[in-house]
Write a protein that binds this DNA or RNA. Structure first.
Lengths: 147, 147
DNA sequence: TCGAATTGGTTGCAATTGTAACCGTTGATT
DNA sequence: AATCAACGGTTACAATTGCAACCAATTCGA
């Protein structure tokens, strides 16, 4: 029999558990107040934080399936929080951008996010989050290199 | 305007992205070979690694919704990888346990998992995974304390 | 320059998931 | 004991999701 295996120290498992926990925890902050789903918030955040982008870029950036992005974009557009403009060079591409209303919503929720993270950092101690994120970046790099 | 917000350093976002990435990456190792879904693997792993448990305990342990657990258990049972035995004191409770076949499957997949993590550690350097997991443990503690 | 392959994006459909309501059992309150 | 809340677990139903097939536009290659 091979050396023992402890699920508790298996990284995919641990990452998933932590991610689901924190995701739910933060979702409670905006789901009710802004009637927004997670893909929508992610899209809003991507656009609000990095500016004008295409749907494909949003997906690549936040690792969301393109149909998820497509639907989130449709939702946000209907809410008039986002507008599309077609690229004049390549007519397949559409550039996405937040409207004034979208930007306003983004700022409010970003504010929640900042507060949320600050309170977490309060508990964890200074630098703790940065250290975790540096570790995550390494993991992502390793995985993406893995083909 | 409040101080800037960068999605890229927002922990829920970063955790989710990394978790989805690694989860997919490892799922490729067993989905095909063992025709198993993620909840099934999680349940199998929980039982294989911690032994006899109830469904509620599996859920609490791996942070899965109880309907997810219920369905995974049904699947595993049909495959004869798991058996239920009722508690004689409390007839609501059922204890879950892997069969010999289930244990065998568990060991094989655990082997994949060990190899997977070893190759990751190879890239990341010694101790890197432990450090990340320690950080995650802190985060989970903080979140669970948060009511 | 024509056809095949690729790309950005959407959609139909089937599978996965969460919510809420439920069943039978147990524990607490009276 | 009788009632009622709580609990372990399942299930019906609705919402969310992913896969695959698709459309239109573009690029590649012979």
């Amino acid at each position: 029999m091979p050396p023992s295996f402890d699920l508790e120290s298996f990284l995919p498992y641990r990452l998933n558990r932590a991610a689901e926990l924190i995701s739910l925890s933060f979702a409670r902050e905006y789901k009710q107040r802004y009637q927004m789903t997670r893909p929508e918030w992610r899209t809003l955040a991507a656009l609000g934080s990095a500016g004008r982008m295409t749907a494909t870029e949003v997906g690549a950036h936040s690792n969301m399936h393109k149909t998820k992005v497509s639907r989130a974009v449709r939702e946000l557009e209907q809410r008039r929080w986002l507008k599309r403009t077609e690229d004049d060079a390549d007519r397949r591409v559409e550039h996405l951008e937040l409207t004034a209303a979208g930007l306003k919503a983004y700022r409010e929720i970003a504010d929640l996010a900042r507060t949320y993270q600050a309170s977490l950092e309060q508990v964890l101690g200074a630098g703790a989050i940065e250290r975790i994120e540096a570790g995550l970046a390494d993991v992502e790099r390793a995985l993406l290199a893995k083909t």
